[in-house]
Design a binder for these strands. Sequence first.
DNA 1: GGGCCCGCAGGG
DNA 2: CCCTGCGGGCCC
Length: 740
Amino acid sequence: MPDLPCDGDGVCMVCSAAAPPEVDLLRCTTCATPWHSPCLSKPPALADAAQWSCPDCSGGPTHAPAPLAPGGSSDLVAAIRAIETDAALSDQEKARRRQELLGGAAPATEDEEDEGDDLLEILGKNFSCVFCMKLPDRPVTTPCGHNFCLKCFEKWIHNRKRTCAKCRAEIPKKMAEQPRINSALVGAIRMAKISKNANSAVSATAYHYLRNDDRPDKAFTTERAKRAGKANASSGQIFVTIPPDHFGPIPAKNDPKRNTGVLVGEKWEDRLECRQWGAHFPHVAGIAGQSKYGAQSVALSGGYVDDEDHGEWFLYTGSGGRDLSGNKRTNKDQSSDQKFEKLNAALRISCLKGYPVRVVRSHKEKRSSYAPEDGVRYDGVYRIEKCWRKIGVQGKFKVCRYLFVRCDNEPAPWTSDVCGDRPRPLPKIKELNDAIDLTERKGSPSWDFDEKEGWKWMKPPPISNKPILSGDPETDAQIRRVTKRAQLSVAERLLKEFGCSICRNVMKEPLTTPCAHNFCKTCLLGAYESQSSMRERSRGGRTLRAQKIVKKCPSCPTDICDFLQNPQINREMMDLIESLQKKAAEEGDIQTCSDGSNGAQESGDDGDNADLEKEEDDSSPNEEDNNDAGCLHADDDGPVVKIVVESKEEDLQLKKKGDDKEEKDEKKTMVSTDVVDIAVEEVKQGSGKAGNKEVKQRKKRKGNAADAEAEAAMDTAVGEDARPAVKRSRKSGGEGLCTL
DNA sequence: GGGCCCGCAGGG
DNA sequence: CCCTGCGGGCCC
């Protein structure tokens, strides 16, 4: 028998004793509900009765966690589970990754802990449920702008109270009957808690839960290719425990499978297998790197005729400047200048910093005597001593050029030496005479030679910005999502929770509608500005009864007309937002210097860079979209004002994640049929276009080739799409084929 | 050996 | 999201 309280009439819902004697009644200190103590499965000791919280409020078994908002901790749990089940990881490594996942960055620093505390404090100061005095669990917000736990609120309502416990304002029937959880608050509170509990409670629970989950071991055989062969395969398990932005050799400690590390001369069948051992991660691309951070590795596979291989040193060509239309991945012919951007910029950073760059050679490089006969081979680390541009051998366009010189403690696979490299004089490069944009390292290199210890990091290697890959695409995608969130400061993430879905900025004077959507006061009111709540109708000479106008919430079909009569600012939320903004502003400095963009700040090398940037001919793409992305607006239907009196049953309870898309589509169709109604006012001009885009995207998802083509035709005809036709052709070609 | 094709991974 | 990319299978 579950524990049940006394009902509204004071009748025990367990034993049905009407009006039990007062001594047998226990009042919950949290929700004030009376309980018949003899019927409790675990009645409190007499001494504790004064402090007693009922099973509903104290988190007993009936108090199962509510389904979380989309993108919530279920992602997190899945990601943690993946770590736990990864047999390739030592317990220590697992712990480290869990921590990374939960805390945001590798070893949790004091700062982070402080941040968590601060935020919880801020939250606690601004929010507390009047009933339980705690941070609201499943928070609901009254139209008068006060926040409570759902449970506490329901208890209150259940006791036939129809006024706000805080301000005594009347609570509308709808809110009383169907309170909505304010998911913006849920997110904010949860994040603050996670950031606080990263090292203790949360991870401990997760750890236990996952330890017991003995899913079959994926071992090291995972090959996720869906079709035979590797032409279009997924890469499979990653065996080494380095993040994809790890520089330098792969040491034994990151090779839990063999405990040898990746040794010079190791060979693999192909690029996918090479990737699994971390020597060079990209599946197709020749350069692994990030434009503001550096390049970790390159592949020599004969993709660029300008390459020139001399074993201990070689000349490498940058990427780009080629026409990849027609759904190609590569193309021998240059058709435009390469620039020091993207991966080419990454290589240049490695040059400036003197980072070690891993090099793999592929059998596909036919013109080099150092290339392996078959497969892909790891040849150790090199440094990029100089880079520049020149007109490529094809004669028309500029290419980026890089001088790589070997600097590895292990001998190269082709030498009979037993020792690795020693610093050697730079080779004389003829083409340097007509080099453009020459860039050389000015400061001392990060990776350098020490007479006693050989090649080593003289300056600490750059701190990784990425989680370690598992090779399982789903897991990695989840981890990426989680860490991406984690990369924002906690305060920023909290602020993100408080975005107004009309103006997309952090809310000013937030209003919480009875349907639990949040907007800036001015945005929401502005959206209905020209509408009065009643509409005088006259037909012929006589005046008809005034008809009530329905005003739809901008985020859902709920009529919020009554709420709009006298909307109350959610003061608590407003105060919180202000504290957070202050905190985020303080954090600002720290954020910017930890994001890895300290790339090319070596003394004095900036002059060069600036020059380069200026000189680059600007064939800037005519982007029709700004980065505030159509997708943000796409689900923005704007408030729809209509005059129909209809009772639409809303079932917008907390939806499970994954239902999101359907919900959106549902909403869309609903609106489009409703638009027949008399007055339709859209908040945003141009939302029609956004909608159009959304439709296009959906079609694309469905792979509707005919529609896509019609669309493309329309684009051309209307001239709306300013992209060059070649760029589209790769995409449309792909679509056409994949549907058949 | 060359051309075509396209799933996938990563950068921004 | 959209774009890029020194692959790999397959057909000619």
